[in-house]
Design a protein around this nucleic acid. Structure first.
Lengths: 137, 137
DNA sequence: ATGGCACACGTTATAGCGTTACGCAATCGG
DNA sequence: CCGATTGCGTAACGCTATAACGTGTGCCAT
């Protein structure tokens, strides 16, 4: 369970987070919209507003390379600054992980260049073990 | 000079690469299209096809987090597998860099999980030294 | 040479992603 | 009570990317 029914979440935010939790893989904003039609969702903005807040709270990640969103799989609070993703382009499965050494090295670059980071994106797209094996390519 | 007038480049590819070379920062596909109207460009697909090939050749990078493209600043041939970008969201400037340790650590994760990577994205967005200083926030 | 293939190109239309702008209602601290 | 903030709903729009069609050109194996 990724959502311990965060007390501060509004109705829309809760619905969006639940949709992402139920989903097997990442969902696009418009897919979320479609899945929440029965709950009264009518416009993209309802989804994007909820997603924005959920990202602020660290409950949802945006996958930039595929324009989609996933519920954060890490226990609430144990959060890393940088999160990396391995995205299977065949089955859509996403693995979330962190690496201290990577954080450290990027942090060094940033300090050396006096760059003030706001968001860091690390995404590896390719084929997961299962898909790479089963493919007869 | 990022473009040593690659012999294999077609006319459209050359035009797109030159547009990116001339630009100060990253350009969106539609901005490129606008800048090449006078050269006969009329449709997005002309731009996207050229960009696709240029990316294959390693002459152009796509910045996933801002849906834009930049000419590769590295000498042709000295190419790294993983390239990282620091993107200033204020002035738009982009710094391209590589880090062996980061490559190594991500490579280890990939091997451990038998994941077959196709493309790796590393992007840090924030404020560059100049913009962070000059801002009175 | 000619038929088949691969590739670049051009055009139209469409799909997919995200935001701007407006107004209304609830909440909260002064 | 009032103003500020925040969330919500709707409509319209703009930006990003691809699908599906057809054309022409060069290559090369038959």
């Amino acid at each position: 369970m990724t959502s311990p029914s965060h007390p501060e979440l509004t109705k829309n935010q809760t619905l969006v987070l639940k949709a992402l939790d139920k989903a097997e893989g990442p969902l696009s904003a418009y897919t979320i919209l479609d899945r929440l039609r029965d709950d009264g969702f009518r416009a993209p903005l309802q989804v994007y507003r909820a997603l924005g807040k959920l990202q602020e709270f660290g409950l949802v990640h945006r996958l930039e390379s595929i324009n989609a969103f996933v519920a954060c799989c890490q226990p609430h609070g144990h959060r890393h600054e940088m999160t990396a993703f391995a995205i299977c382009r065949t089955c859509g499965k996403v693995d979330e992980f962190s690496d201290m050494a990577v954080e450290e090295r990027l942090g060094e670059w940033v300090r050396a260049h006096r760059f003030k980071p706001a968001k860091t994106t690390i995404e590896i797209s390719g084929d997961c073990a299962d898909c790479a094996t089963h493919e007869h390519a």
